[in-house]
Protein backbone atom coordinates (compact mmCIF):
# COMPACT_ATOMS: atom_id res chain seq x y z
CA UNK A 1 0.00 0.00 0.00
CA UNK A 2 1.32 3.39 -0.97
CA UNK A 3 1.77 5.99 1.73
CA UNK A 4 -0.37 9.11 1.53
CA UNK A 5 -0.71 12.58 2.95
CA UNK A 6 -3.87 14.53 3.21
CA UNK A 7 -2.94 17.94 4.66
CA UNK A 8 -5.65 20.41 5.56
CA UNK A 9 -3.65 23.53 4.73
CA UNK A 10 -1.22 24.74 2.12
CA UNK A 11 1.52 25.32 4.66
CA UNK A 12 1.14 21.78 5.94
CA UNK A 13 1.33 20.50 2.37
CA UNK A 14 4.54 22.45 1.78
CA UNK A 15 5.99 21.10 4.99
CA UNK A 16 5.31 17.54 3.83
CA UNK A 17 6.82 18.26 0.44
CA UNK A 18 9.96 19.66 2.03
CA UNK A 19 10.55 16.33 3.72
CA UNK A 20 9.24 13.76 1.25
CA UNK A 21 9.37 13.32 -2.46
CA UNK A 22 5.68 12.94 -3.34
CA UNK A 23 3.43 12.39 -6.29
CA UNK A 24 1.03 15.29 -6.16
CA UNK A 25 -2.55 14.21 -6.66
CA UNK A 26 -5.07 16.92 -7.48
CA UNK A 27 -8.06 15.86 -9.60
CA UNK A 28 -6.35 12.61 -10.53
CA UNK A 29 -7.90 12.38 -13.99
CA UNK A 30 -4.59 12.14 -15.84
CA UNK A 31 -2.58 10.27 -13.24
CA UNK A 32 -5.21 7.64 -12.57
CA UNK A 33 -5.75 6.99 -16.28
CA UNK A 34 -2.00 6.79 -16.94
CA UNK A 35 -1.49 4.38 -14.07
CA UNK A 36 -4.52 2.20 -14.82
CA UNK A 37 -3.40 -1.44 -14.93
CA UNK A 38 -6.50 -3.41 -15.71
CA UNK A 39 -9.88 -4.63 -14.62
CA UNK A 40 -10.54 -4.23 -10.89
CA UNK A 41 -6.93 -3.61 -10.01
CA UNK A 42 -5.40 -0.64 -8.26
CA UNK A 43 -2.87 1.69 -9.81
CA UNK A 44 0.62 1.54 -8.35
CA UNK A 45 2.56 4.66 -7.45
CA UNK A 46 6.24 4.82 -6.63
CA UNK A 47 6.11 7.78 -4.31
CA UNK A 48 3.76 8.68 -1.49
CA UNK A 49 0.66 10.49 -2.69
CA UNK A 50 0.06 14.05 -1.59
CA UNK A 51 -3.64 14.87 -1.92
CA UNK A 52 -4.21 18.58 -2.36
CA UNK A 53 -7.49 19.04 -4.18
CA UNK A 54 -9.49 19.66 -1.01
CA UNK A 55 -7.26 22.50 0.24
CA UNK A 56 -9.38 25.63 0.31
CA UNK A 57 -6.55 28.07 -0.32
CA UNK A 58 -5.84 26.29 -3.58
CA UNK A 59 -9.39 26.51 -4.83
CA UNK A 60 -10.08 30.23 -4.63
CA UNK A 61 -10.63 32.38 -7.67
CA UNK A 62 -10.22 36.08 -7.00
CA UNK A 63 -9.72 39.45 -8.64
CA UNK A 64 -6.80 41.49 -7.24
CA UNK A 65 -5.28 44.58 -8.87
CA UNK A 66 -7.03 43.82 -12.11
CA UNK A 67 -5.53 40.37 -12.19
CA UNK A 68 -7.39 37.11 -11.89
CA UNK A 69 -5.84 34.72 -9.39
CA UNK A 70 -6.90 31.15 -9.90
CA UNK A 71 -6.13 28.52 -7.30
CA UNK A 72 -4.37 25.57 -8.92
CA UNK A 73 -6.96 23.13 -7.58
CA UNK A 74 -9.97 24.92 -9.00
CA UNK A 75 -11.70 22.33 -11.15
CA UNK A 76 -12.58 23.02 -14.74
CA UNK A 77 -16.26 22.99 -13.73
CA UNK A 78 -15.59 25.56 -11.02
CA UNK A 79 -13.90 27.81 -13.58
CA UNK A 80 -16.98 27.54 -15.80
CA UNK A 81 -19.16 28.56 -12.83
CA UNK A 82 -17.03 31.53 -11.80
CA UNK A 83 -18.12 35.08 -12.66
CA UNK A 84 -14.49 36.14 -12.80
CA UNK A 85 -13.37 33.90 -15.62
CA UNK A 86 -13.51 35.50 -19.08
CA UNK A 87 -15.90 34.02 -21.60
CA UNK A 88 -12.93 33.60 -23.91
CA UNK A 89 -11.38 31.19 -21.44
CA UNK A 90 -14.69 29.47 -20.75
CA UNK A 91 -15.03 28.71 -24.46
CA UNK A 92 -11.76 26.85 -24.20
CA UNK A 93 -12.71 24.98 -21.04
CA UNK A 94 -16.12 23.95 -22.31
CA UNK A 95 -14.38 22.00 -25.08
CA UNK A 96 -12.15 20.13 -22.67
CA UNK A 97 -12.81 16.49 -21.76
CA UNK A 98 -16.36 15.69 -20.59
CA UNK A 99 -18.56 17.07 -17.80
CA UNK A 100 -17.75 14.29 -15.29
CA UNK A 101 -14.04 14.72 -15.93
CA UNK A 102 -14.33 18.50 -15.68
CA UNK A 103 -15.88 17.97 -12.26
CA UNK A 104 -12.60 16.39 -11.14
CA UNK A 105 -9.83 17.83 -13.29
CA UNK A 106 -8.02 20.93 -12.08
CA UNK A 107 -6.39 23.76 -13.98
CA UNK A 108 -3.17 23.16 -12.09
CA UNK A 109 -3.15 19.54 -13.16
CA UNK A 110 -3.68 20.46 -16.79
CA UNK A 111 -0.71 22.83 -16.60
CA UNK A 112 1.64 20.62 -14.60
CA UNK A 113 1.20 17.69 -16.96
CA UNK A 114 2.87 19.92 -19.52
CA UNK A 115 1.31 18.03 -22.38
CA UNK A 116 1.70 19.70 -25.79
CA UNK A 117 -2.03 18.99 -26.11
CA UNK A 118 -3.01 20.60 -22.78
CA UNK A 119 -5.99 22.77 -23.65
CA UNK A 120 -5.60 25.58 -21.12
CA UNK A 121 -2.08 26.33 -22.29
CA UNK A 122 -2.57 28.18 -25.61
CA UNK A 123 -4.85 30.68 -23.87
CA UNK A 124 -2.48 31.04 -20.90
CA UNK A 125 0.45 31.58 -23.28
CA UNK A 126 -1.54 34.09 -25.27
CA UNK A 127 -2.32 36.08 -22.13
CA UNK A 128 1.21 35.80 -20.77
CA UNK A 129 -0.13 34.18 -17.63
CA UNK A 130 2.14 33.87 -14.61
CA UNK A 131 2.28 30.90 -12.31
CA UNK A 132 2.92 31.13 -8.58
CA UNK A 133 5.08 28.42 -7.14
CA UNK A 134 5.47 27.88 -3.43
CA UNK A 135 7.75 25.89 -1.24
CA UNK A 136 8.41 26.07 2.44
CA UNK A 137 11.19 28.54 1.72
CA UNK A 138 9.09 30.99 -0.24
CA UNK A 139 7.18 31.96 -3.31
CA UNK A 140 8.40 32.51 -6.83
CA UNK A 141 6.58 33.59 -9.93
CA UNK A 142 7.27 32.41 -13.46
CA UNK A 143 5.78 33.22 -16.83
CA UNK A 144 3.84 30.17 -18.03
CA UNK A 145 6.21 29.66 -20.96
CA UNK A 146 9.16 29.33 -18.62
CA UNK A 147 7.27 26.97 -16.39
CA UNK A 148 6.57 24.52 -19.22
CA UNK A 149 9.92 22.99 -20.15
CA UNK A 150 9.17 20.13 -22.48
CA UNK A 151 6.50 17.49 -22.99
CA UNK A 152 5.64 16.14 -19.54
CA UNK A 153 8.27 18.32 -17.88
CA UNK A 154 7.45 21.35 -15.79
CA UNK A 155 9.57 23.73 -13.76
CA UNK A 156 8.64 22.44 -10.31
CA UNK A 157 11.32 21.37 -7.88
CA UNK A 158 10.58 18.36 -5.67
CA UNK A 159 9.64 20.56 -2.75
CA UNK A 160 7.44 22.94 -4.71
CA UNK A 161 3.77 23.21 -5.49
CA UNK A 162 2.04 25.18 -8.21
CA UNK A 163 -0.42 27.21 -6.17
CA UNK A 164 -1.92 29.88 -8.40
CA UNK A 165 -2.28 31.03 -11.94
CA UNK A 166 -2.39 34.76 -12.47
CA UNK A 167 -4.02 36.24 -15.55
CA UNK A 168 -4.46 39.83 -16.66
CA UNK A 169 -8.14 40.69 -16.44
CA UNK A 170 -8.69 41.49 -20.05
CA UNK A 171 -10.85 40.60 -23.00
CA UNK A 172 -10.05 41.20 -26.64
CA UNK A 173 -12.19 42.63 -29.45
CA UNK A 174 -11.58 39.55 -31.47
CA UNK A 175 -11.38 36.08 -30.01
CA UNK A 176 -11.04 33.03 -32.21
CA UNK A 177 -10.41 29.59 -30.77
CA UNK A 178 -10.42 26.32 -32.63
CA UNK A 179 -9.76 22.95 -31.11
CA UNK A 180 -9.44 20.05 -33.49
CA UNK A 181 -10.09 16.62 -32.05
CA UNK A 182 -10.78 13.22 -33.54
CA UNK A 183 -14.44 13.88 -32.87
CA UNK A 184 -16.64 16.60 -31.46
CA UNK A 185 -17.30 15.18 -27.99
CA UNK A 186 -14.51 14.55 -25.49
CA UNK A 187 -11.28 14.44 -27.45
CA UNK A 188 -7.65 15.02 -26.90
CA UNK A 189 -6.48 17.83 -29.11
CA UNK A 190 -4.70 17.04 -32.34
CA UNK A 191 -4.19 20.73 -33.09
CA UNK A 192 -5.52 23.95 -31.62
CA UNK A 193 -5.31 27.62 -32.41
CA UNK A 194 -6.11 30.63 -30.30
CA UNK A 195 -6.06 34.08 -31.88
CA UNK A 196 -6.78 37.21 -29.87
CA UNK A 197 -6.66 40.76 -31.21
CA UNK A 198 -7.70 44.33 -30.67
CA UNK A 199 -8.41 46.45 -33.72
CA UNK A 200 -9.02 50.16 -34.23
CA UNK A 201 -9.69 52.02 -37.46
CA UNK A 202 -8.62 49.27 -39.78
CA UNK A 203 -5.42 48.36 -37.96
CA UNK A 204 -4.33 45.87 -35.41
CA UNK A 205 -3.45 47.42 -32.07
CA UNK A 206 -2.81 44.24 -30.12
CA UNK A 207 -2.52 40.63 -31.10
CA UNK A 208 -1.42 37.24 -29.87
CA UNK A 209 -1.47 33.87 -31.55
CA UNK A 210 -0.94 30.57 -29.78
CA UNK A 211 -0.98 27.05 -31.17
CA UNK A 212 -1.34 23.81 -29.28
CA UNK A 213 -0.34 20.23 -30.02
CA UNK A 214 1.86 21.12 -32.99
CA UNK A 215 5.27 21.29 -31.30
CA UNK A 216 6.84 20.01 -28.07
CA UNK A 217 5.40 23.03 -26.28
CA UNK A 218 2.84 25.70 -27.16
CA UNK A 219 3.86 27.77 -30.16
CA UNK A 220 3.84 31.51 -29.75
CA UNK A 221 6.10 33.95 -31.58
CA UNK A 222 6.26 37.50 -30.21
CA UNK A 223 8.57 38.72 -32.95
CA UNK A 224 6.06 37.87 -35.61
CA UNK A 225 3.21 39.23 -33.51
CA UNK A 226 5.16 42.51 -33.23
CA UNK A 227 5.48 42.56 -36.98
CA UNK A 228 1.70 42.40 -37.24
CA UNK A 229 0.81 44.88 -34.50
CA UNK A 230 0.27 48.35 -35.88
CA UNK A 231 -0.37 47.11 -39.40
CA UNK A 232 -3.47 47.91 -41.36
CA UNK A 233 -5.57 45.00 -42.58
CA UNK A 234 -4.37 45.66 -46.11
CA UNK A 235 -0.74 45.57 -45.05
CA UNK A 236 -1.35 42.32 -43.25
CA UNK A 237 -2.39 40.75 -46.51
CA UNK A 238 0.91 41.87 -47.99
CA UNK A 239 3.14 40.56 -45.24
CA UNK A 240 1.10 37.38 -44.84
CA UNK A 241 3.57 35.15 -46.73
CA UNK A 242 6.42 36.28 -44.46
CA UNK A 243 4.28 35.67 -41.40
CA UNK A 244 3.19 32.22 -42.51
CA UNK A 245 6.75 31.29 -43.41
CA UNK A 246 7.87 32.22 -39.96
CA UNK A 247 5.20 30.00 -38.37
CA UNK A 248 6.03 27.23 -40.80
CA UNK A 249 9.54 27.19 -39.37
CA UNK A 250 8.50 26.92 -35.75
CA UNK A 251 5.56 24.55 -36.04
CA UNK A 252 7.09 21.09 -35.62
CA UNK A 253 4.35 18.53 -35.19
CA UNK A 254 4.58 14.74 -35.07
CA UNK A 255 2.66 11.75 -36.42
CA UNK A 256 0.79 9.90 -33.71
CA UNK A 257 -2.32 7.84 -33.02
CA UNK A 258 -4.53 10.87 -33.44
CA UNK A 259 -3.27 12.71 -36.51
CA UNK A 260 -0.42 13.32 -38.90
CA UNK A 261 2.40 15.85 -38.78
CA UNK A 262 1.50 16.99 -42.26
CA UNK A 263 -2.10 17.79 -41.40
CA UNK A 264 -1.22 19.42 -38.12
CA UNK A 265 1.20 21.77 -39.80
CA UNK A 266 -0.99 22.63 -42.72
CA UNK A 267 -4.12 23.15 -40.67
CA UNK A 268 -2.23 25.41 -38.27
CA UNK A 269 -1.03 27.61 -41.12
CA UNK A 270 -4.53 27.70 -42.58
CA UNK A 271 -6.00 28.70 -39.22
CA UNK A 272 -3.48 31.51 -38.80
CA UNK A 273 -4.11 32.72 -42.33
CA UNK A 274 -7.85 32.49 -41.91
CA UNK A 275 -7.66 34.46 -38.66
CA UNK A 276 -5.41 37.20 -39.98
CA UNK A 277 -7.37 37.67 -43.19
CA UNK A 278 -10.58 37.69 -41.19
CA UNK A 279 -9.53 40.52 -38.91
CA UNK A 280 -11.02 43.15 -41.13
CA UNK A 281 -14.29 41.31 -41.61
Amino acid sequence: MVNAFHPETLSKALEILAENPCTIMAGGTDLMAQKARGFAIRPVFEHPLLFINHIDELKQISLEDNEIHIGACATLSELLESQLIADTFKDVIRQMASPPIRNLATIGGNICNASPAADTLPYLYALDAQVEIQSQTGLRTLPIREFIKAPKTNGLQNNELLTHIVLPNKEFDINFYRKLGQRRGMSLTKASFHGLANVTNGSVTDLCLALGSVAPTIVRCELTEQLLIGQSFINIEEILPTVLNKYSEIIKPIDDARSTAKYRKEVSIRLIKNFLLGLGK
Binding site: G28, T29, M32, A36, L49, N103
Partner: peptide, 26 residues
Protein backbone atom coordinates in the same frame (compact mmCIF):
# COMPACT_ATOMS: atom_id res chain seq x y z
CA UNK B 1 -10.85 2.32 -16.73
CA UNK B 2 -9.65 5.52 -18.34
CA UNK B 3 -12.55 7.95 -17.97
CA UNK B 4 -13.69 7.58 -21.57
CA UNK B 5 -16.92 5.61 -21.35
CA UNK B 6 -18.83 6.93 -18.32
CA UNK B 7 -20.18 3.52 -17.27
CA UNK B 8 -18.72 4.05 -13.80
CA UNK B 9 -20.21 7.49 -13.18
CA UNK B 10 -21.40 8.16 -9.62
CA UNK B 11 -22.26 11.39 -7.85
CA UNK B 12 -19.65 12.96 -5.61
CA UNK B 13 -21.08 15.84 -3.62
CA UNK B 14 -23.87 15.97 -6.16
CA UNK B 15 -21.65 16.07 -9.25
CA UNK B 16 -21.10 13.29 -11.76
CA UNK B 17 -17.57 11.87 -11.66
CA UNK B 18 -15.86 8.89 -13.28
CA UNK B 19 -15.27 6.61 -10.32
CA UNK B 20 -12.42 4.87 -12.17
CA UNK B 21 -10.43 8.10 -11.97
CA UNK B 22 -11.08 8.85 -8.31
CA UNK B 23 -8.46 7.53 -5.88
CA UNK B 24 -9.92 6.67 -2.50
CA UNK B 25 -7.48 9.06 -0.90
CA UNK B 26 -9.50 11.94 -2.27
Amino acid sequence: GEGECGACIVLMNGLAVNSCLVPCGS
